[in-house]
């Protein structure tokens, strides 16, 4: 146990029963007070607090990455990674309630005002309640499994199946020969497709597999070359650009250098 771990164990000993319930209630109260205080603060002060918390949270992960690790691949901060992850998950979980409230607000209004399509809104609200009750109270019953597996999963599968038709219409538009680039795309796609299927491979099966320049003309070899020598480097190049772009924006957010509606407007209020 490292010094930080032992200090935290002494400062926050494991609680049970009434003490645990009291601590949870205290944390909830502290959160409510925190939100109220943040709302009451002027924009600039609020921005400073948010920037400070963001910096500390980012600093934790940066230090955890850069501090040397021992043979067990752990350093002085590694023990806290699951706990910090749990904090993030709890914050995320709290927002799910707001999402559900949004659904109830919009669809509840549709039902109350008997707007066009109110029947769908009613069905959604009823389904939401039935699914929630089934999940909380009857999780290990056929009723819940049937709702989840037979109804929800089937709906998901049906939506996924729609993709097959959309791929055909998108491919038709993409492969129409209307420019030099589209022609190149069409030819490349045709070669890759033929190289992947038995009938395409059969067309050039009489050419040597390797050891001769003629092997370069085999459809499966051309297809493989297109995928590994042309497509893969292009994908990696895009990946590099994205990685560096992600690093830059993460730095901007970590150091509160980012400009945008969610950063500037609050500070401008005061």
């Amino acid at each position: 146990m490292n010094p930080i771990q032992s200090f935290l164990s002494r400062a926050f000993p494991a609680l049970h029963g009434g003490a645990l319930a009291g601590a949870v209630a205290g944390c909830v109260l502290a959160c409510i007070v925190g939100v109220v205080v943040l709302q009451a603060l002027p924009g600039k002060a609020r921005k400073a607090i948010i920037a400070g918390v963001t910096f500390l949270a980012g600093l934790f992960y940066a230090l955890e990455f850069f501090l040397p690790a021992n043979a067990q691949d752990e350093n002085i901060l590694t023990f806290a990674v699951p706990t910090v992850g749990n904090v993030t998950n709890v914050l995320g979980g709290m927002t799910l309630g707001l999402g559900v409230l949004s659904l109830i607000r919009i669809h509840g209004a549709n039902v109350v005002k008997v707007k066009s399509g109110w029947e769908n809104s009613m069905l959604l609200l009823v389904s939401m309640v039935v699914m929630a009750v089934a999940g909380i109270k009857y999780e290990h019953t056929l009723f819940y499994r049937s709702l989840f597996r037979d109804v929800l999963n089937s709906f998901d599968a049906a939506m996924f199946a729609v993709l097959a038709f959309f791929i055909v219409s998108a491919a038709y538009r993409a492969f129409r020969i209307k420019s030099a680039e589209a022609t190149l795309l069409m030819v490349a796609a045709l070669v890759v497709m033929l190289g992947q299927i038995p009938i395409g491979q059969y067309l050039t099966h009489w050419l040597p597999v390797k050891g001769s320049y003629l092997s370069l003309l085999r459809l499966d070899n051309i297809s493989n070359w297109l995928l590994t020598t042309v497509n893969a480097p292009a994908q990696r190049a895009i990946g590099f650009g994205l990685g560096i772009g992600g690093l830059a924006i993460a730095l901007r957010i970590w150091l509160s250098l980012e400009r945008g509606a969610y950063f500037e407007a609050k500070a401008d209020e005061s």
């Binding site: 929800l152 998901d156 939506m159």
Partner: peptide, 10 residues
């Protein structure tokens, strides 16, 4: 602005 579902196909 409205929340729909966190399930991909829903």
């Amino acid at each position: 602005v409205y929340f729909l579902s966190d399930r991909q196909f829903a």
